[in-house]
Amino acid sequence: MSQYSDLEKAINTMVTQFHSASGDKSGTLKVDEFKNLLGSQMPNLVKFGSDQGLGDILSKMGVGEGEGISFKHFWSLIQQVATSQHGLLKDQFGGSSCSCILL
């Protein structure tokens, strides 16, 4: 049996938590469910502090007014956070530029 990497475990956790957070099992999250998910799983990376900050995050994810948060929306946030963290780490450690392609 193969051992999962920390990254694979983290991705599995985020996917599992997203699907567990939906109270109505529709496959989408309500804003409060989404806010609770971020607070429990990404408290240090995603700080919105206010409803305006949360609104900005939802807008960047492509979530329309009154729309549920789909997994596609959620995954776009994960990509944004990962890209941001990559940039911070690259700057912090003076790493070479990356040729990675993010889909």
Rank of each mutant, 00 (worst) to 15 (best):
I11P: 05
I11R: 12
I11C: 07
M14S: 09
M14P: 01
V15P: 00
T16K: 08
T16R: 07
Q17K: 13
Q17V: 07
F18S: 11
F18C: 08
H19W: 15
S20P: 00
S20Q: 13
A21G: 10
A21W: 13
S26C: 03
L29G: 08
L29T: 06
K30D: 02
K30R: 12
K30A: 09
V31I: 13
V31F: 01
D32I: 15
E33N: 08
E33R: 09
K35R: 15
N36I: 04
N36G: 07
N36W: 00
L37I: 01
L37Q: 02
L38G: 01
L38K: 03
L38I: 13
L38V: 08
G39L: 05
G39N: 12
S40Q: 15
M42V: 00
N44G: 10
L45H: 05
V46M: 10
V46C: 14
V46K: 07
V46R: 07
F48C: 07
S50T: 15
S50G: 06
S50V: 09
S50P: 05
G53I: 12
L54W: 10
G55V: 13
D56Q: 11
K60E: 03
M61Q: 04
V63Y: 03
G64D: 12
G64K: 15
E65P: 13
E65I: 04
G66I: 05
E67V: 05
E67I: 02
E67N: 09
E67K: 14
S70E: 04
K72L: 04
F74S: 02
F74C: 02
W75A: 14
S76T: 15
I78R: 07
I78N: 01
V81R: 12
Q85S: 06
Q85E: 12
G87K: 04
G87S: 10
G87D: 06
L88A: 05
L89E: 12
K90R: 03
Q92V: 04
Q92A: 14
G95H: 10
G95I: 13
S99T: 01
S99K: 12
C100K: 05
C100T: 04
C100Y: 07
I101E: 00
I101R: 12
L102W: 03
